[in-house]
Design a binder for these strands. Structure first.
Lengths: 261, 261
DNA sequence: CCTTTCAGTTAGTTA
DNA sequence: TAACTAAGTGAAAGG
C-alpha cells in the first residue's frame, strides 16, 4: 500500500525540484531548532511544503501546525540511511531549522496549484460600492447616487457619482482597505479631469475602512474629504438585502401555512 | 485523472463519517461569514479537515491558511447541483460558517493518523534533568548530584538527589513547564516519605521555567524552594555538550591537518 | 532592515 | 465559563 522509502525519496526529490505544492503523510519524527527548540517523537502527521518554502507539520487535531517554517526557506531532502528519509527546512535570519525524519510514508503527492484569485476579507470593493449605492447615507446624509462610472483609463478605481443635499456634484472613491496617499492622488487626478469639463462645484470623498496617517496632509491640502466606512457596515447592508428576500419568502410561507389551518 | 465530482462526493461522504484526517485538493470557491466575512473566488487549494472539526484552506503560498475553522465545528457535505460539491463547516459561539464549493477535485484522501507522542517545546524533562546533572550550578552554586532516583510509586516525577555545599540532602523536582500546586504537593509527599527514613536535614527544590502565582503560598508554608531554570539554559548546556564533542573532533582534525602541512 | 501594531488571531492558564 | 496573557506568534505598514 505505502510506497517504499526508496520510491518516496525519488518521488519527493522530483517534487521539491519542481517547486510545486507538496503533500506528505507519514510516520515521522520532527526536530526544530531556532528561536526555540522542540522535539516530537514518532507519529503520523501531514506535511505541506509550498513553493515559496513554507513548511507546515500538522498533527491529527488542532488549528495550528505543531511545527512549521515560514515562507522563503530552503527545503532539502537527505537519506539518513537505507530506511530513513529526512526533509530539512532551514532559513537564516533568524537561523532556524526543522528536520522531519520519516520511517514510513503512506501518501506523497505534488502538483502546481493554479490559484490567482484575490482574497477579499469582509467585502470586495464591488460589494462596498453596492452597499453604498443601496444605502448612500453610509457616506453622507442626503447623498443621491447618479450613475455608475465606467472605468475610462484608471485601474482599480472603484467610484460613485452622486449629488449631495445642496446639489453639488460628488465623486466618491471607494477603497476596500486602508486609504493611502495613492488613493488620494488617484481621486485628485480624476477630479482634475472632471473640472476641465464642468463648472459645477465638485467634492471629492475617499471612502475606506480607515486612512493612513501619512495620507492626511495630502488630503487636507487638496480639500478632499475622508469618510470612514467599515466593511462590516457594508456587509450589514448587503446582508439586510439578502435577509429581506428571505424574510419576504418566509412571510409568504407563513401566509400559506395560515391558510392550511 | 481527477475523480468525478460524483465519485469524490461519495468518497468524501465516507471520509467525513469516519471522522478521520481528510485531504482535498481541488478547484474551489470559499465563502466565510462569522466574526468577519470573506470571499475567495475560484482557484486550486488544499483543504485539511481534521477529526476534531478543524478545517484549513491553504493557498499555494504562505504560512497561514486563507480560511479556516477552529476545532469542534460541524462539517457537512452538500450537493449544490450535479457538478457542484460543497463542504460546509460551521460552529456556534461565535456563530461562524465557511463553505467550500468545488467544481473540480484533483485529489481526495483520508485516513486516521496515529500520533500519540508528546510535543516537547524547548527540551524534555529528561533533557532538563540531563542538563542539570551536567551543570548543577544551574540550580545552585556548589550542588553535587548523588544518584538518579528510581521511580518508586510516583508518576511523572522527574527528580535529582543531591547534596548542597553544606552537606545537606537536596531533592530537586524538575518540571518542564510551569510549576503549579500539584508539583509542590508532589515534592512535599516525597519529602515526607524520605523524612521518615532519615534524620538528615532535607531541602526540597522545585526547578521549572516559572511558577504559578497560585503555588506560591503553598511553597512558602511548606518551606520548599523554587529555582527558575529556563529550558533555553538547559538547551544551551546540552548544546555545549554536543558542541564539545564536535569541537573536540574538529580540534583533532585540525591537528591532523597541521600534520599534513 | 527594524519597529510598531493588528489579527476572523489561537492556545493556555487563572479567577 | 469568562478574562487575561503569551506565542518559535505571522503579516502589514511606516520609518
Amino acid at each position: 500500500m505505502s510506497p517504499t522509502i526508496e520510491d518516496a525519496a525519488e518521488f519527493l526529490e522530483r517534487a521539491l525540484r519542481s517547486r510545486s505544492f507538496v503533500l506528505i503523510v507519514g510516520d515521522c519524527r520532527v526536530d526544530y531548532d531556532g528561536r526555540a527548540s522542540s522535539t516530537l517523537d514518532w507519529g503520523e502527521r501531514a506535511v505541506i511544503i509550498k513553493k515559496d518554502g513554507s513548511v507546515l507539520v500538522h498533527r491529527p487535531t488542532g488549528y495550528e501546525p505543531v511545527n512549521w517554517q515560514p515562507p522563503s526557506c530552503l527545503v532539502r531532502l537527505s537519506r539518513s540511511n537505507a530506511n530513513g528519509l529526512t526533509v530539512n527546512a532551514s532559513r537564516a535570519q533568524p537561523r532556524e531549522n526543522i528536520s522531519i525524519e520519516y520511517r514510513n510514508i503512506s501518501l506523497a503527492a505534488f502538483g502546481s496549484l493554479n490559484d490567482t484569485s484575490e482574497f477579499a476579507l469582509h467585502v470586495t470593493e464591488a460589494q462596498m460600492k453596492q452597499a453604498i449605492l443601496t444605502a448612500p447615507n453610509l457616506v453622507e446624509e442626503g447623498l443621491r447616487p447618479l450613475a455608475e462610472e465606467k472605468h475610462i483609463s484608471e485601474t482599480g478605481f472603484t467610484d460613485i457619482y452622486a449629488e449631495d443635499k445642496n446639489g453639488f456634484l460628488v465623486i466618491v472613491e471607494i477603497k476596500r482597505n486602508a486609504a493611502n496617499r495613492d488613493a488620494v492622488m488617484q481621486l485628485q487626478g480624476y477630479l482634475e479631469k472632471i473640472r476641465k469639463r464642468t463648472d459645477r462645484h465638485l467634492r471629492g470623498i475617499v471612502v475606506a475602512p480607515y486612512i493612513r496617517k501619512s495620507a492626511l496632509p495630502l488630503l487636507e491640502s487638496l480639500k478632499i474629504e475622508f469618510i470612514k466606512v467599515a466593511p462590516e457596515q457594508c456587509f450589514a447592508v448587503l446582508k439586510t438585502q439578502k435577509d429581506m428576500k428571505i424574510s419576504q419568502f418566509i412571510a409568504v410561507s407563513e401566509d400559506d401555512n395560515s391558510k392550511l389551518i
